[in-house]
Nucleic acid binder design. Structure first.
Lengths: 384, 384
DNA sequence: GAATCTACCGCAAACGATTCCGGTAGGAAT
DNA sequence: ATTCCTACCGGAATCGTTTGCGGTAGATTC
């Protein structure tokens, strides 16, 4: 017979529906509804590998968890002996603080997010490594997202970071990003953002980039000084700022030495291998073939070199080539590639440093724009 | 005059010490201690950019937060209209669930950790990319740690991941790791671990690696078939399993073709550029100079090639070279480097896949060992 | 027309920390 | 002998969720 869980009576019990598969009863005397507890769970020492919490420590020491928490941190209101005992017990029980809980109450996750377009070249991994180094040193974790050059995934990435309540975000945009609401969402919630490399001009946040203009200028100037006169340029996608800055450097270098700017000597490449080859062929097919090319980056320069070699064009005597970014391959190819070196890891370090600063300062932080210096590395491919 | 906060009386108040910089009072009538509230905070509309929570939605709709939570998920006990209203309001208020809170109550962080020794070559970034792809597809975040080939940082990394309550861990060990307590800590708490590439033989967990033995065998066999007879090997650090397996492949290939194994033709390299050059010189200085070298990886092979070129040794006629790992540089160097391709991204994908499976299955998961196939990529450096 | 069922909804207890403040010995000052 | 102070400790609220289960209106059944 069914007994009421309160009065233990047997009369006055009526059924009252089935809820979630279990029969429910109603006791008229107590005016209470109830279902019978599952008794069949025999024992079920499932126990779920328990991680020790401050409550465990508190119980073991017969003190309150507030005291444990105080002992575990810098806090005045704690007896040194108590503190020592807590520390010792924490060690014994192998206590690992639950950062999730801590983050929740402090509303600070000690995590920063990074959104990069890709992950394949050595460029972004190196930046991430740099950023991760300074973040780790400050006790921050890093969540990395790849937008895969897709606006939609970039938006999804931003939401993931938002949901994870990151304290700050490092972003290098997709080449197709034209709306920025997903970035502005960070600002709205007071989450600082630092752009690097592919920056968003519309947003009033900190930015870290290399001095592309100056790098390009130096590169082209170097070609001119080496006697090249009909210098072409394979640029990047028009949507990117680096494309404009490097192109500007190219133009200004020509202007500086009173060389004419010829429209047909500038082509734009979407940075894929296939398109790089296409651009290379386009230039080499010109009636008035260029005697040197400044490329927007090393992979493009290398493809150009391969195409030129296939056509038996002598490098550097008939064609000088300068790349940008100093990828490892450029060092081993023959002739070795002259290139503009960017302080890649420094970009990550700088960006992360600025971001941490912004997190620390909160409201009164003022965005800054940092421009890192480039270095021209002269190798064989540009010595006429 | 000071009034008691309870009875509002003025008499019967005595001072009772200073606590945290503020005067404390005691009311004898009420037997109560109190400090005066800070009144000076004028207004303080600091407000901290609030993120909307389910409580906000609940209030706006005048329902309980449990209902909101149910509406936001698959749950039977919810009126479709209520659900629609909640969803709409969530959209309006731009609700982003707080994953930290969710993780706390579910004791599941939806985050996996990755520990890699470094981050500079294209190898680990590519693996991470692969792992991150499948993790992201399953709604998991990734926390990446670099041990920098140091045992101590590796231990610290493990603690960070533990503290962040990751649901699972992907590990490629340091070359100096000889104790495994920090890994066993994961097991102790029921956190699954999958090793990849540099695996830990002592632990009974899943492992993903490429079939180094078979790759090496194929590589050396290829050299033999191309007419090389005095084949040397630059191996990796003895502590790594890949070193042994590749060496074993080398030996067995020789044995298969009844070629003698000569101890002096095997040297071990710690994989640094400097040591690679040193090893290369050591081999090329031998009286009985090898006519081919199978190298433990491409960077080493490339250094060897550069040293050989410097000595005007003709490749591949006088010296055949085969690398391992198919790095981009090997493709552009001249002569192009024959190498053993590993399915790098697949390592990451496989490892992450296995890990997610382990997380899903929990207790009843049985570790597996996965061996991925390699492919020999024949280029110029090995055609006598 | 009383008993039962269906379909919801809300309350409150977790999860594991931090932190404000009240409480209380025991000694020092008056 | 009161008062006051110092040095601690504990209680309870809070962070934003999830979830078990009790509560209830209205329809259905006998």
């Amino acid at each position: 017979m069914i007994k009421c869980i309160r009065c233990n009576h047997v009369h006055a019990i009526t059924k009252s529906g089935i809820v979630r598969g279990k029969q429910r009863y109603y006791c008229k005397d107590c005016n209470i509804y109830f279902t019978l507890p599952d008794e069949t769970t025999v024992d079920g020492k499932q126990h779920k590998k328990h991680m020790t919490t401050i409550v465990d420590i508190a119980k073991a020491l017969n003190i309150s968890k507030s005291t444990v928490s105080r002992a575990l941190h810098e806090h005045g209101d704690i007896n040194p002996q108590t503190k020592a005992a807590v520390l010792e017990m924490a060690r014994q029980l192998d206590y690992q603080p639950n950062l999730l809980a801590k983050s929740l109450v402090k509303s600070k996750s000690n995590t920063i997010g990074i959104i990069v377009p890709e992950f394949l070249t050595y460029f972004f991994p190196t930046i991430i490594m740099g950023a991760q180094q300074v973040a780790a040193a400050a006790g921050y974790n890093v969540i990395i997202c790849q937008s895969q050059e897709s606006y939609k995934t970039e938006v999804a990435n931003a939401n993931v970071l938002l949901a994870n309540r990151v304290d700050g975000v490092l972003i290098s945009m997709t080449r197709e990003t034209k709306k920025f609401d997903h970035f502005k969402a960070f600002e709205k919630h007071g989450i600082p953002v630092v752009f690097f490399n592919r920056v968003c001009e519309e947003m009033h946040t900190s930015k870290v980039l290399v001095n592309d203009y100056e790098g390009a200028l130096k590169a082209v100037e170097h070609l001119i000084k080496n006697g090249y006169r009909n210098i072409a340029h394979i640029g990047g996608p028009p949507a990117l700022l680096i494309t404009h800055n490097r192109l500007r450097g190219y133009r200004d270098a020509l202007a500086k030495y009173k060389l004419p700017f010829k429209k047909e000597l500038v082509v734009h490449c979407n940075l894929s291998k296939k398109d790089a080859i296409h651009c290379a062929e386009q230039l080499l097919n010109l009636k008035n073939r260029p005697d040197a090319v400044f490329c927007v980056n090393d992979p493009v320069a290398i493809q150009l070199m391969l195409v030129a070699k296939k056509r038996k064009i002598k490098i550097p005597s008939e064609l000088g080539i300068v790349g940008f970014s100093n990828e490892p391959s450029g060092e081993v190819i023959e002739p070795a590639l002259t290139t503009v070196q960017q302080p890649v890891a420094d970009i990550g370090r700088s960006a992360a440093g600025i971001l941490l600063e912004a997190i620390r300062k909160g409201e009164e932080y003022v965005p800054e724009k940092k421009s890192l210096k480039t270095t021209l590395i002269v190798r064989e491919s540009s010595k006429k």
